[in-house]
Structure formats: C-alpha cells, structure tokens
Design a protein around this nucleic acid. Sequence first.
RNA 1: GCACAGGUGGCCGAGCGGUUAAUGGCAGCAGACUGUAAAUCUGCCGCUCCUUGGAGCUACGGAGGUUCGAAUCCUCCCCUGUGCA
Length: 383
Amino acid sequence: MPFSFEVLATSGAARRGRITTAHGTIETPVFMPVGTLASVKGVPQHLLEELGVEIILGNTYHLYLRPGSDLIREMGGLHRFMAWPRAILTDSGGFQVYSLSPFRKVSDEGVNFRSHIDGSTHMFTPEKSMDVQIALGADIIMAFDECTEYPATRGRVESSLQQTLRWAQRSRRHFEQHKHETPWRSPRPLLAGNSPPEPPAAGDFSPALFGIVQGGMHPDLRRDAARQIVEMDFPGYALGGLSVGEPRELRDQIVASSLEHLPADRPRYVMGVGYPEEIVRYAMMGVDMMDCVLPTRAARHGLLFTSEGRVNIKNARFAADQGPLDPECGCRVCGRYSRAYLRHLYVAGEALAGVLNTVHNLAYYLDTMRTVRQSIQAAHPSA
RNA sequence: GCACAGGUGGCCGAGCGGUUAAUGGCAGCAGACUGUAAAUCUGCCGCUCCUUGGAGCUACGGAGGUUCGAAUCCUCCCCUGUGCA
C-alpha cells in the first residue's frame, strides 16, 4: 500500500483496469486533467469531484517556483493545500526543461534554468525533482527526464535518451531513500458524503515513482529505452516526448510499438495527449493513463469538443442559437445553458465563459473515457 | 457674438504636401492550441471585379482654390468643445 494496479478486463490490446492510491481509486483507461499550478484552470475542486475526476496533475517546476515546495510541505502537502482529496500526479519538471528552452542549460548534473517569473537562476537535478515532488506529496510522481524535441537527429535523440536513463536511475535511487518523507494531512471533505481516506500513520505513505521512456521517433531507440527503464522496475511507465510537433501517424506508430515493450501488469501512461479521437485510439492500443492541457486550454479559448465535433463557440452563427452546446452531453453546462449564452459570455470576456467551457470539455473527455472503459469491459465481461 | 482648440475609415486616435486605402488600439470576422511562461497567439478587416497577383472605384465635415501632386497649404461655409461676453 498504498499503490497498486490491476487489470480487470481486456479487449484486444486495450485494458480496463484500476489503480488504487492512498487518495482513492482510479478507473483506467483514465484521462487526467492538468492542474499545473495547483489548479485545473477555471474549475474549482468541488466541481472536479462532481465531474468524477479521480486524478489530476500538478507540476514540480511551477509549484517549486511559486508558492514554493517548502511552503506546500508546511501546509500539509498539495492535497491539503489545494483541498483536493483525490489522487494527484506530479510531473517532474522534465517537460519544462523542454518548453522553457530559451532559459535553460542542460548538463549531466541537471538543468540550470531561469525562472520565467522573476528571472532568478535555479538548478533542477533528479534528486531535486524527487525532493520537490515528495514534499508536494503527490500519489504518483515522475522520474526527472528530458523531453526530446522534434525534429532531432538520431544522435541527439540517443544522447538525450541516455541522459533520461541516467536521470531515471538517480531519480530512483534518491526516491528510495526519501520516499517516506511525504508530509500528509488529509484535506477536509468539501462535498457532503465525501469522506477522504484516513491518512496513514506518519512515515507510512510513499508515492509511486513512474519511469519515463524517451527515444524520439525511432522505434528501436524507444525499444532500448523501454527495456532499460523496465529493468529498473518502476510501478508504472510513461511514454514521454510525444505531441511535440510530429505527425499524428508517426506518433501512433511510436505509441503502438513502444507499448509492446512495457509490462502488462503495470500502468502505461502516454504523457501530453491528446484530442478526443486520440485518447480513444491510445486507450484501444493499451494505454491506461493520459493527460493533456487541451480540453482546459481550448475551453478558455472558446474551442469546445462535442459529440457533433468541434465547436468554436465564438462563431457568429451561435449568436441566437438557443440549443444546448451538445445535445448528447449530460453535463450541467449542456443541461442548463444555451449556445447563445455561452457565446455571449465568451465574446464579452466574462470569466464564467472559461469556467463553463472547461467544465463541459472535461465532462466530454471524462464521458469519452467512461464509454471506452465500458466498451472494453463489455467485450470480455467475465475477464 | 468674440477667442482659442478641433472635425480622419463602425468607434477612439496617429498622420500635417508625394513611398497613404491611410500607423495604433477597440469592435467585428475567422483560424490555431496536445506532460500549461497561454482567459493566449495568428490572419482578415472601404466597395467591386479577377485565379494567386493584381485591376478599377470611392474615401480624411462641405464647397471652392493653390500645386505636377492635398487628409496635409489657402478662402468661405457647416458642426463640436472650452473660455470670454
């Protein structure tokens, strides 16, 4: 305890599973909303709970800079701090090594970077990333990796991947020494009837550390990276370095081929995807976990995902459209507000537009995954 | 009535003799967004025609004038603001 994964049913390559954490269970395949700054932008935690969100992401880099991982530790950990009783996965800061490239310098030791907030200089190493993530107290934490850019030469991909492997080893070693140092006070329940799990005895809790497979768009490098990471024996494995500008077909090939080299009894996580069609496709390929900023960011930009396709709610044609955003959708937004109203809110720049749009997009993503889980289970109900 | 200051494309507002269909901003129209430096960014935005590229037309309160050339200079008129009567 308190991390485990079980496969409940399979259908072809797809798996229907369940992850158990100290902060509740997660039905997989799962889509995980991104809450970089201890907030899924625009949606209060009690609404996330109501939507059925079982796990969200937080980010090491951002929370370390502000408000600071020491502060969050003092506050009793990230769950308590943000009043989120369910599971949290923190990204290691590895992606920021890539996305904040103008400000960073990578060495074998780690990454030297400048804060995008105030320009101050900082150093992230695998050890530092582990310390910060352990201080945050997430349920699942990620090894410190380097997200290889695309396109990249084979030589570059190779050396980047080697860096990630060395960092994985160091992440693991440091993690094993410090994994019980997580601060933990359980958050107060926010919804009636929602009792968060009892906190374990002090020093009893440990997050689960996932390894990350890099290797760019080269199947053989991905295979080698996967083998070496798997050899390190992590409780879960992620495919990183995808959705960085490569063509969709290429990404699909890489995901499919890489999954073959990951053990069936551990959750598989594809980082940073995707569009609704993509997360369905990957789930059917055997991916168990995915996260993406798309539903939340797109929502704030007026792009909504519906059963009838993408809707750009700011389009003039919705100005007097009294119908629901998505007639097939059971979310509170579709059940209550018209397209005309949603368009008005967006055009008027009302903050509520971002809130309602995000609630819908997340509901759509979660429904989509719910359907996927049902279809996998239905294929082999007895499995 | 007198004195100043002004009247520019849907709005605000630059320009103050030619490279000006006219900088910007707003509004409008459309597009992008994939481990969140993103409630952000990009394109279009007088009218008509043609295929990209372009062609034509109409435009800077109104009417005249100066000039090879005027939103820009001159005259008169109309209107707005402020001050004084």
